[in-house]
């Protein structure tokens, strides 16, 4: 019965409009199949063997398109600033209900595992799948686990803020160093040695920048999570 009622004019017109749009999209895309052309990625793969690290995605994210990553970090920074601005009132209100025994003991067990895994993913991001973003989010999720299991715990704001500032400033400073030393912003001035390919210390600034990115992402995500959590009970 209620299906009839919910089939309002709005639903019908929305359905028709989006169906028409999508059918034409599918039609166009199926008729023009992408060919195997030489794409920019192939050029970057070739370039990677002389200037990059083992994980090509890391090289692309941090170095070849490092400027995008800087912008992306700025987006995260502004977003966490905005979340803090919106939800900053009554920061003293905390979660009222104590968590249960299961969660408390499990968090004691899981927290070290998650944080070690996060740090591993962050540090080995240039050799194996993973990297700063993934590692940072893992660390932030470990912090979230601690926060929901222990209502009295509060990650000190000053520490998060200091980490975040340090990471952000040093990323831009590394970029400016490149500008100063060789007139190219974000230049890899530590000149990667090809003989070190695949080692932990290889790739010049790439692993350093990715660890910085990890710290930045972890602190921003921790900040967002803490802000959303502290407000969740009184809404």
């Amino acid at each position: 019965m209620s299906i009839k009622r919910s089939l309002s004019t709005l639903t019908l017109s929305g359905f028709t409009l989006s169906a028409l749009l999508i059918l034409s999209f599918i039609n166009i895309l199926l008729q023009n199949v992408a060919t195997n052309i030489e794409r920019a990625g192939d050029g970057l793969l070739k370039l990677n063997s002389s200037e990059g690290v083992a994980n090509v995605v890391t090289t692309v994210v941090v170095y070849f398109r490092g400027f995008d990553t800087l912008g992306e970090i700025a987006v995260l920074f502004i977003a966490s600033l905005g979340v803090g601005l919106m939800l900053e009132r009554n920061t003293e209100c905390t979660i009222k209900v104590q968590s249960n025994f299961m969660l408390q003991s499990a968090s004691k067990l899981l927290f070290p595992i998650i944080i070690i895994f996060g740090l591993y993913v962050m540090i080995y991001g240039h050799l194996s799948p993973g990297g700063g973003f993934q590692g940072g989010v893992l660390v932030a999720s470990a912090v979230l686990l601690l926060l929901i299991s222990n209502k009295d715990l509060e990650v000190p704001h000053a520490v998060i803020s200091a980490l975040e500032t340090l990471a952000g400033v040093s990323y831009v400073l590394i970029g400016l160093m490149g500008l100063l030393l060789s007139d190219v912003f974000l230049f890899n001035f530590l000149s990667p040695n090809i003989a070190d390919f695949g080692l932990l210390l290889s790739g010049g600034i790439i692993p350093i920048v990715y660890i910085i990115v990890g710290i930045k992402v972890g602190s921003e995500m921790g900040f967002i999570v803490q802000n959303l959590l502290k407000r969740s009970d009184d809404v």
Binding site: L44, L45, A54, N55, V56, V57, E72, F133, F197, G198
Partner: peptide, 22 residues
């Protein structure tokens, strides 16, 4: 993910991964 410095064939395009990550 390269093992040695000079093999470039047989890899997927890294740009989509990087773009989508961003």
């Amino acid at each position: 993910i390269m093992k040695v410095a000079d093999d470039t064939s047989k890899f997927n395009d890294p740009i989509p991964h990087a773009m989508i990550l961003t």
